Computed example of a mutant assay.
Amino acid sequence: MFDQSPYTCRVEWGRRGAREAAERGDIIIIVDVLSFSSTVVSALNYGAVIYPYPPNIDGNDYAQKISAEYILGRAEAAKAGKPTLSPVSFNEEHTNKKYVLTSLNGAFCTWIASKVPALLIGSLLNASSVAAVTNQLRLQMNASVTVIPCGELWSNGKEEEDTLRPAIEDYLGAGAILSYLAGEKSPEAEVCIGAFHHTRSKLEALIWDCGSGRELRERGFGADVKHCSRLNVYQTVPILKSDHFVEYY
């Protein structure tokens, strides 16, 4: 199969892209702006400990085994006053507390690619910081980098259809990170960077009104959309260590 292997910095979509990059042994940056990546970055910014877990395995049982709290769905957690996949639900109260976080896209891609030399979490919130750390790791490990915009999943997909729905918020987040990365970019990465540069002045408006943003807003989570659309507001860089994320120093 023809791929982006001649280039240092690449971009691949979703679970399949995560597996491809993992098999190459690339450094991987997972980008799921609304909201897994943004939630992990925000949670670690407040000192929470996040264990990513795929949605097709019993996360509640896993949480009990490691003495962590299993993160509930947005609506359920909001009623209980607990942190959730909503990034704005985390604050100082959650410092040093352990949480199991699952999602259909970002957590699943993380699970698939967990054995790579380094797996980092990127978002618009920490785009320049995660790129700076990756630039260091790339030189230390002599490895290439693949940025994975996770995308969304179509609902009610038919058996013969691909369920991945490319999501512009993830593509723009990936483009932002790639724009700060050193190294030769693949054509796919260059186009992704171009999308970011072209829209940088109106990122918040575009993400507010994109399909994923509208879905969250209509469910009452407009604050999440606003929070996740901000560029370079955190220096926090989550990196996977064994089974959980720690802040890179």
Rank of each mutant, 00 (worst) to 15 (best):
residue 142 N to S: 15
residue 142 N to R: 14
residue 143 A to R: 14
residue 143 A to K: 15
residue 144 S to P: 00
residue 149 P to H: 00
residue 149 P to N: 01
residue 149 P to C: 01
residue 149 P to K: 00
residue 150 C to S: 12
residue 150 C to N: 02
residue 151 G to P: 04
residue 151 G to L: 07
residue 152 E to T: 06
residue 152 E to V: 01
residue 152 E to C: 05
residue 154 W to H: 12
residue 155 S to Y: 08
residue 155 S to L: 13
residue 157 G to T: 14
residue 158 K to Y: 08
residue 161 E to F: 10
residue 161 E to N: 09
residue 161 E to K: 08
residue 162 D to K: 08
residue 163 T to N: 07
residue 164 L to Y: 03
residue 165 R to C: 06
residue 166 P to S: 07
residue 166 P to G: 05
residue 167 A to F: 00
residue 169 E to F: 10
residue 171 Y to H: 11
residue 172 L to N: 03
residue 172 L to C: 02
residue 173 G to C: 11
residue 174 A to F: 02
residue 174 A to G: 09
residue 175 G to L: 09
residue 178 L to R: 05
residue 179 S to G: 00
residue 179 S to Q: 04
residue 182 A to S: 14
residue 182 A to T: 14
residue 182 A to D: 15
residue 184 E to Q: 12
residue 187 P to M: 10
residue 187 P to Y: 04
residue 188 E to C: 06
residue 188 E to W: 09
residue 188 E to H: 10
residue 190 E to A: 05
residue 193 I to N: 05
residue 193 I to R: 06
residue 193 I to W: 02
residue 193 I to F: 04
residue 194 G to E: 05
residue 194 G to N: 09
residue 195 A to D: 03
residue 196 F to P: 01
residue 198 H to Q: 13
residue 199 T to C: 13
residue 200 R to A: 15
residue 202 K to L: 11
residue 204 E to N: 10
residue 205 A to H: 11
residue 206 L to R: 10
residue 206 L to K: 09
residue 207 I to V: 14
residue 207 I to M: 12
residue 208 W to G: 00
residue 211 G to C: 00
residue 212 S to I: 07
residue 213 G to M: 08
residue 213 G to R: 09
residue 214 R to P: 00
residue 215 E to Y: 14
residue 215 E to N: 14
residue 217 R to G: 14
residue 217 R to C: 12
residue 218 E to P: 03
residue 218 E to R: 15
residue 218 E to D: 14
residue 220 G to L: 00
residue 220 G to W: 06
residue 220 G to H: 05
residue 220 G to S: 03
residue 221 F to R: 01
residue 222 G to A: 06
residue 224 D to I: 06
residue 224 D to S: 02
residue 226 K to T: 09
residue 227 H to S: 08
residue 227 H to Q: 07
residue 227 H to M: 12
residue 228 C to D: 02
residue 229 S to N: 02
residue 229 S to V: 04
residue 230 R to L: 12
residue 232 N to V: 13
residue 234 Y to P: 02
